[in-house]
Design a binder for these strands. Sequence first.
DNA 1: CGGGCCGTTGACACAAATCAATGTCCGTGG
DNA 2: CCACGGACATTGATTTGTGTCAACGGCCCG
Lengths: 253, 253
Amino acid sequence: MSVSPEAPSLARFLARLMRRSALTESEQAAILALPATVRCVAPNRDFVRLGERVDQACCVIDGLVARFDQNAEGDRQITALHVPGDMPDLYSVVQPRATSALQALSESTILSVPHAALRELTGDYPAIAEALWRDCMVDGMILAQWVVNVGRRDARTRVAHLLCEMACRLGVAPAEGRLVFQLPLTQQHLADATALTPVHVNRTLKALEVHGISFRHRTVRIGDWRALTAIGEFDPAYLQSDLRREDLIRIAR
Amino acid sequence: MSVSPEAPSLARFLARLMRRSALTESEQAAILALPATVRCVAPNRDFVRLGERVDQACCVIDGLVARFDQNAEGDRQITALHVPGDMPDLYSVVQPRATSALQALSESTILSVPHAALRELTGDYPAIAEALWRDCMVDGMILAQWVVNVGRRDARTRVAHLLCEMACRLGVAPAEGRLVFQLPLTQQHLADATALTPVHVNRTLKALEVHGISFRHRTVRIGDWRALTAIGEFDPAYLQSDLRREDLIRIAR
DNA sequence: CGGGCCGTTGACACAAATCAATGTCCGTGG
DNA sequence: CCACGGACATTGATTTGTGTCAACGGCCCG
């Protein structure tokens, strides 16, 4: 029931792009001018279904969106979480057949942008094509870390790492000290994301409380950010959120 | 010590692109004309190191290349395996800072292509930029399945799934029946890829032998392909290897 | 007031990790 | 030609982290 502070627009998506790509004024304007329709999506219902052919990409304005996969027994696995400003299925512009389902975890607002408009842009502006491609690759790097998290870390480290990642991606991570922020997901969702059972997530959260970390009523409270990053073995480099000047490249032409 | 049947060239990479993207004659020619230098890489030594800034992308010609990540304790996790025709670090064209190390698993031949040349191409030919972007997204879909594999499947299913995936990506998977193929990796590598211990991989392979599946001396022998896909819960859809005509898109211009 | 979702807790089961030893193959150098 | 070392594979005994099952509690909302 949170109120979006700004009118729904692609401004936050553009801001996300600009952190990693150098775009000219006219390129920025072209992105902001993209046609888009606002939509509210209810939690826990696929708004993009597996195998479906989509003809528009969505941008999260408010709330939290997850990409769901599952094994043959139907055990769910979240393969990506998307915060406001992300485009969870940007990849569909070049690969319109959905290979994962998309679901909001809390009541969310999304903006739908037709592929046709995006494709027109990428044809006209190579630098925009590159920026979108790069944006997809950042999601890819996050996904690779997700494999490490699920494959090579124990429950406590795994949950701590996820909390760190979400704090950073939501832009609320401090340099050190205290932190309180909203994370609109349930312990069940946390289990789906970390490949644990809800029961064990519960016990793990209990174990983290000793270290001044709590998660209740969708609110994360961290007494000491440094302590959390230590427990979670967290190094934000893979998020590519502060690229050095020399890494800010753009293609010729 | 395998002998590459063809002279090192980007032909196999182009073939891979063409399975999923429609490229004109001139676009195809432009890709084949890319400058490239051949290199032999020794197994088990990083040829791209973590955090390094790279200025060329590589293409696997012969052998097997893996992307390695690790947790804080140094436990290794393979986040991607790359077969001949793949470009393991194509993403570096838009994101030149390596976030994972690259290593050959057996003596391998790779082709290095300067970013500058690739970027010139993507600037000149939007359809090539799109094809490369799409290619990266296929790797992304494989990676998402990797999360499901590691997170939500037991050891036997996990190993079987990986064998299925590799058979398909190597292009040797039959519709049914017997299959024998080379897979130049060790049980240790298999463990790094499936997030198991080498000891448990060994026991798991033993358990699979009952089902007519063996892996010895880098040779996989499968008595009944259907049986393996059943054990591995394998559905090749995510590999995007046979896109329907209507999904073969290319951007305007 | 009742039902459902979410969170919590305990007892127990089990898959996989760990530890440790041994075996096999192969290339190398004496 | 044989001894040696190293990489890889195999096996058994034991431990442990996480899953499973089941019950209960709190809270919101209709």
